[in-house]
Nucleic acid binder design. Sequence first.
DNA 1: TTGTACGCGTTATCAG
DNA 2: CTGATAACGCGTACAA
Lengths: 349, 349
Amino acid sequence: MKDVAAQLGVSTATVSRALKDDPAISLATRQAVAEVAQRVQYRPSAAARRLRTKSTSLIGVVMQSVGDGYIGAVVLGIQSRARELGYQPLFFATEGQSDLEAQALEVFLSEQVTELITVSPSASVPRQAVAEGLHVAVINSDEAVPARRIERAATGRTLPAETGRGAEPMIKHIAFDDLGAGRLATTHLIELGHQRFVHLRGPNVRSSLLRLLGYRQALTEAALWPQPVLTAAEPFMQSREAAVTGFLEAAKPPLAMVAYDDMSAVAALHAAHRAGWRVPQDLSVIGIDDIQFAAYTNPGLTTVAQPKHRLGALAVDAVTERDAAEVTVLDGELVIRESASAPNSGDPQ
Amino acid sequence: MKDVAAQLGVSTATVSRALKDDPAISLATRQAVAEVAQRVQYRPSAAARRLRTKSTSLIGVVMQSVGDGYIGAVVLGIQSRARELGYQPLFFATEGQSDLEAQALEVFLSEQVTELITVSPSASVPRQAVAEGLHVAVINSDEAVPARRIERAATGRTLPAETGRGAEPMIKHIAFDDLGAGRLATTHLIELGHQRFVHLRGPNVRSSLLRLLGYRQALTEAALWPQPVLTAAEPFMQSREAAVTGFLEAAKPPLAMVAYDDMSAVAALHAAHRAGWRVPQDLSVIGIDDIQFAAYTNPGLTTVAQPKHRLGALAVDAVTERDAAEVTVLDGELVIRESASAPNSGDPQ
DNA sequence: TTGTACGCGTTATCAG
DNA sequence: CTGATAACGCGTACAA
């Protein structure tokens, strides 16, 4: 900056202002400054700027892993929206190690991050973060929001920010409508004409519970409740496959399965194949999430898609806008492929 | 820092040194400082530190996308190694938009990043980056390394850094041994007893060419060359499936296929299924990469795994060590699942 | 063994 | 409309 100032015979203060298009600077000098800055390849020092103004435009992002396809898509949404708004995201994958979560927070604090987005790690990080005065948004939190509040939100879409003292930072929640997704998936199967159902439920977390609830609600409304619910001992593929295999042994086609998520559905597809059940002729399977791979299973997986990109983008908005809604719930969308069809249909088409 | 100094009645300089465990500071004061720093929750300002010392410990990472499972794993490797060495990675996904690549570089320069890692974006970014004086490493570059050099490296494992003026920064290459992977995959099929092969090749990039070369070499050495090579018009699943479908129509089992990568192999699995070919009884398929999903295809995909994590970790080393090898080549590892078996074997096991 | 003083590159305040 | 000047938090040469 000194260089630019020297070349034009003006002060650095003028250069600084001209670069920000300060209207108090004459148009002529503004252009001159811009031109010289361009010529000497002037690059503002982010560090110096941060030191001076306390605003860092840094937004920290903590997530479990980045390799699982679901979070990757969310991260992309975060990144693109952040850049649109002039923020620089700082990513930190914890790989499920809680000491890394603490470390992430430490790093963010050193970097003077003021906004934090979390993609379902432990609840302690968001808590500590608000305690430190950060603005934080949580995407698909596993437990921080009381179930009944989410449920209310799931019908009303969005709850206004709480009316207490507005200056007090609080955790914003951006969530996929798990309950609605469970309902949507189940309803699709009902409309296809199925009578006998089974749900392969997930681990003991909010999303799993809500999806199960949606399954039950849809069935209840169709006067088809009760129906069986399968529980895998552990959230691993083998355990899920075993659960499905066991169930299939004592069952007869046609059957319709709502899986907790796409990976569970894939496990079900395997189990069905091994057990000699044809999908979708004998067994219709529907997943939830629409991971990238869902398009490539055999048969292609019918599922309820999460708006992963928007989830990320909205989290950025929530954390940067002062008056964002306290909780925002996003609808799933039915994606029809080949794994679910009418019962007894000879042709899966 | 002033606070800590004031509380102890020492100068900030002392605090600064004590925090760095400067042996010139008495043990007593060092401990006292550490204790107070802890108590007042002192957090060093990364910005101030960067401003003062020009070293930022920031390493920029440019990649195409983060959602595809392969890059995600590499990114994890980068991150964990970077943290071990005290570096802070700055990620930037370009989504294939070249204007974003330029923007990424701009951001990095403003942040005073001095090390840059690239996961196969366009070659222009690394070039510009070295021009700016950055240390750069490229993971699985698509074209920057002359083929014969990679080939030489593929047999000798590692080439020493060039002996010219050592101070001059140059692009380091970290590469998967694509040639060897092609050979390994093909050899596995040969050893299984196959006689008739086909290769589904990839787009016109280095990795595709080298894998094809490996396919040819292995077959030539087994006196089985020539064998057919399939080319998909475009690098999309549909195009790949179409290519395989067309070929299968005019072919007879048993057949052994080496696919360019796991996604190509998945496309082949689909095409085979539609055409009524059983895998692996009629058609053995082997992929390359070992993406997360390879374990969940039906049947499970036999493939040659890339050491994705190590690729990332070594890139960090290459970019942080002054005397790292110019090009490092990593071997693939055979992962046997169910998609490849001996020809005519009744039981895929 | 410790303190003093300066500067890193910016921006904000206050004068002019 | 523009220029001096101070200060952000830290590290380090130099002096004590």
